[in-house]
Amino acid sequence: MAGAGEIRNFRTLFISDVHLGSKAARTELLLDFLKYHEAETVFLVGDIVDGWRLKRSWFWPQGCNDVVQKLLRKARKGTRIVYIPGNHDEFLRDFPGTHFGGIEVADRAIHEMADGKKYLVLHGDEFDVVVRNARLLAYLGDWAYDAAIAINVVLAAVRRRLGMPYWSFSAWAKLQVKHAVNFIGEFQKVVADEARRNKVDGVICGHIHHAVMTDIEGIHYVNTGDWVESCTAIAENHDGSLELITWREIKVTAELHALPAPVKSKDMQAA
């Protein structure tokens, strides 16, 4: 695995669930990631802009502008960028086939890898029973997630002061609830079934903020994760193989290695 300071070139990058417009969006980490990763094609797999939160209250700091400008700049330089809207940026679903500054909008896509395997690319919210059948419940869940993120910020600060490693309360809480109803497993199964109906080899999606690559009854299921907590992306190498990149962990490791070695006290040197 390359370090945080090395530029890597891929055939394709898949990024989802950035949630620009949310205070939880890790724009600084995404900008850093985009700086060190180039690709012929970039798929934005939904929930890049958080329209739900922006409707509640406008929040658009400079970091959000910087991410948009970075993507537009890549498009101008020749990168093909495909934006597949999710439920939080569903307003873009009214513009399939439209190009915005070189970024094309599509409801879903079939992507052929370098090795000839085909993958269905979609956000995945249409297979989330909560979002599909109970919009009010989905909005309440969204509010609760905001609250968990706020708790997370306080906890992280306390743990840093105590010299403890990073631990995500919001990710833990979400995982406990969704495991209780077997949500993640069921979501993965129905998305894999959709890939099977489309006669493809695999599926790449987002939506549930749970980055993973696994095989489900002959279908390669890939979830891109998010840029709220895990800060993950999926990359296609030039041979068609896929890898999961966890940028938060790479950055933390690089920062730790960059720290100066502790200076030994005179007493320790004497010993």
Rank of each mutant, 00 (worst) to 15 (best):
T224P: 10
V252L: 04
H111A: 04
R11T: 05
A156Q: 08
P165K: 08
V153I: 02
V177L: 07
K23Y: 13
A271T: 07
G78C: 07
T214V: 07
S265P: 14
R132E: 15
K117I: 01
W167N: 02
A180H: 13
D226H: 11
V181L: 08
T12Y: 00
L30H: 10
Y139K: 09
F100L: 14
A147L: 15
V158C: 00
P96E: 05
K77Q: 15
W227C: 00
R11K: 08
I204T: 11
V121L: 02
R8I: 00
G101L: 04
A75T: 09
K118I: 00
M1D: 01
L92G: 02
Q269N: 06
V130P: 00
R56G: 06
V45K: 03
D142A: 12
D146Y: 14
V49S: 00
W172Y: 09
K117W: 04
R80N: 09
E38V: 03
L137I: 10
Y166M: 04
N198G: 09
I149C: 07
T253D: 14
V177N: 02
A254F: 10
D47S: 05
A75H: 04
E186S: 01
R135H: 14
N182R: 11
E126L: 14
Y119E: 03
D32W: 12
Y145L: 04
R161S: 14
H257I: 08
G97D: 15
W172R: 09
C231V: 11
Y119C: 00
A150F: 09
M1R: 07
I48Q: 06
D128T: 09
G240W: 02
A171M: 06
I7P: 12
Y221G: 02
G78V: 11
I250W: 02
A138L: 03
G225D: 15
R56N: 08
G21I: 10
K264Q: 05
L155D: 06
L175P: 00
P262H: 10
V190T: 15
H257G: 01
L30V: 05
I103S: 09
W247C: 06
A134K: 07
A156E: 13
F100I: 15
Q62S: 10
A109S: 15
Y83M: 11
I208R: 06
A147G: 05
G218D: 15
E104F: 00
